[in-house]
Design a protein around this nucleic acid. Structure first.
Lengths: 140, 140
DNA sequence: ACTTGAATCATCCTTTCGGGTGAAGGATTC
DNA sequence: GAATCCTTCACCCGAAAGGATGATTCAAGT
């Protein structure tokens, strides 16, 4: 953070210096004030974008919380609501029996759902399903 | 994305217009060129920061990258290097046999490591170990 | 009315996991 | 040298997971 502020200051200083040099040597009497202003505005807007990126990069990374489900991926893979629900519970670390209890269905039903899920995700284990589900944006 | 670009353009246009008005009405003959430049530069740098934030916000969220291992947590829980290694491979979706092949040890060894790991993490399943490992900053 | 897909449950069978226990070799520390 | 920790491996056993297959119900569409 301190580093970026210092860099920002140095960048500003360098900019001003360069502009001064340009001002006194070439442009000031050859080009219009409007053009000169446009150049300054563009340069500093660009600098601002760069600095803004540097300043907000790390902050945003920490936040990075809000997960948005990729529903198009669900459709593409033909994953039903129930199967997705099972995937979420698998990822939360529950056993098939616990999932069955939570969804008020039988163990066999959960096993069927998970088997179909593994087929659609092209995986062989629930741990792989977790991994792939995250990659595809199906679970947080 | 298109919206931000349009906003950016409108912002620039508005800025230029305002500057023009100011230029022809008040400042141009009362203040030095340096001061005028500084105002322009600051305004546009600020605008750039704002635009930069808008432009990079969504992109950065998806990255959500650099993971830093919490080694103090490993020590606190008494998790050895090998056990942590096994945890990483478990989280990547490998079976115990696959982990054994990758580490050039026997299946029994992997089972011992994972069992000790589960004790230290206070979990009962590998899926829970993945979940808790992520919470504690032991794996990405 | 017929088809289709989802959700549900079942049975059989194999593989994988996980718990418990013991033990041997190596490195470090006291 | 004894104690401790890590790593390695083994055997046994029960629980959980996974594959294959078939069946029923029910709602939605055609």
């Amino acid at each position: 953070m301190n580093r970026t502020i210092i860099l920002y200051g140095l960048g500003l200083a360098a900019m001003v210096t360069i502009l001064k040099l340009i001002e006194y040597k070439y442009f000031v009497r050859q080009l219009s004030l409007e053009f000169y202003l446009a150049v300054v505005a563009t340069l500093f807007a660009g600098l601002g974008v760069w600095v803004g990126r540097k300043l907000t990069y790390k902050k945003v990374i920490r936040v990075s919380g809000d997960f948005k489900l990729d529903e198009s991926m669900l459709e593409r893979l033909g994953i039903s609501r129930r199967e997705h629900e099972v995937l979420e519970l698998i990822a939360s670390g529950l056993s098939n029996q616990e999932i069955a209890d939570r969804l008020f269905v039988s163990l066999n039903t959960v096993k069927t759902h998970s088997s179909n899920l593994f087929l659609k995700l092209e995986v062989k284990r629930r741990t792989q399903a977790i991994q792939k589900g995250k990659e595809l944006g199906l679970i947080p």
